[in-house]
Design a protein around this nucleic acid. Structure first.
Lengths: 192, 192
DNA sequence: TTGATTTTGTGATTTTCATCACAAAAATGA
DNA sequence: TCATTTTTGTGATGAAAATCACAAAATCAA
């Protein structure tokens, strides 16, 4: 167990709820270390979504095939949990995909093991609730922004809120994430 | 205490986690019954957001003033909790507004009382987490749809997912919610 | 290293939607 | 009820972005 890799997980969890050493160890023991090559899928539509992926390094995209086009709906960078909440909670077949956009290392946490943690101690429940509050706030803010801002403003918004995206995610994917044609985003970026 | 009004709350809570009679009573006792006239504000930007509003009857809109225009970001109908999560969790001044779009009755639950419930029993924590999972799933799905669909498709999407919105919310507000000009939405609706 | 593939850039054209302007209809409240 | 305010409808116009087409650049894999 690499301590530097574990510490990014610890830091992240502590943001949402402080864990004792024992609790963190318990959490970590429930995880499996996994690696994915660039363009390798973590989840394919039609499959069952069996657990969440804590990103240690690399990047993961969430997309859905709509009219044959890959529409990106989210990106996960180190320190976040890649997931597709709907199929994770309902345990129905996913209609979305998770794909590594670069070589990626993760801690995989099986859904059932997560549920076990929830049962074991309210501490994890609290942590989960706080994490969800954070994600929902972010998601709401983002979607409000995308809906009310013009294309150029959306780019600027992303520059302020998620500058890492602009560095690490190819423009093609960002375009669908922002609801723009690839060419439009390319022209916006060229202006600056 | 009106039992019909209480039962809509009970039904809603039970969707997310079954409560015993005692637990539900405890929850209900933490609430205050309140009424709002049409166009009355439940929260004004600049204020502190002190608690959440469970809608018994009526309708509430969440909007933000952007360039002097009211941009609607959410609507709350009976059986849902009207809130603005960011200011609720951070306890900073809200930059959004909650307004009754029609005569509205609510159970108001003070934030501190909610936190007390969380402390009292993990049952509430579990309920809160499940509710948040549900909200985040919905929010993510909505924002993905708005971003990838064309205006007409957005209207159809709403027709399928939230037909109540189309009945009870004025077109003007729906337009900003869908990220369209009012005139465009009017024309889309005329076509059908 | 080099050929192949993927990603990005850029012009020309078309389509769509926002904007403006005003009329009609509906809702409100005294 | 009736005047006032709010909401909705509809045409004309212009601006912005999507689409199409292709070239350039970057990345990848053997």
């Amino acid at each position: 167990m690499n301590s530097k890799e574990a510490s990014i997980l610890l830091d992240t969890l502590n943001t949402f709820h402080k864990l004792s050493f024992e609790e963190f160890t318990e959490f970590l023991n429930a995880c499996n270390y996994q690696t994915f090559k660039k363009k390798e899928h973590l989840l394919i539509s039609g499959e069952y979504h069996r657990g969440i992926y804590f990103i240690i390094s690399g990047s993961v995209g969430l997309y859905e095939l709509i009219d044959g086009k890959e529409m990106y709906q989210d990106f996960y960078l180190p320190g976040t949990f890649a997931h597709e909440l709907k199929s994770l909670t309902t345990q129905q077949q996913s209609d979305k995909n998770l794909i590594a956009l670069s070589a990626t290392n993760v801690y995989y946490l099986d859904r059932q093991k997560l549920l076990n943690l929830y049962e074991k101690s309210p501490v994890y429940e609290r942590l989960g609730r706080n994490l969800l509050e954070h994600l929902l706030t972010q998601q709401h803010e983002l979607s409000s922004a995308l809906q009310s801002l013009k294309p150029e403003e959306r780019y600027q918004y992303l520059q302020e809120k998620n500058p890492e995206f602009l560095q690490s995610i190819p423009l093609t994917y960002l375009a669908s994430y922002l609801g723009l044609a690839r060419e439009t985003l390319s022209r916006i970026r060229a202006k600056k």
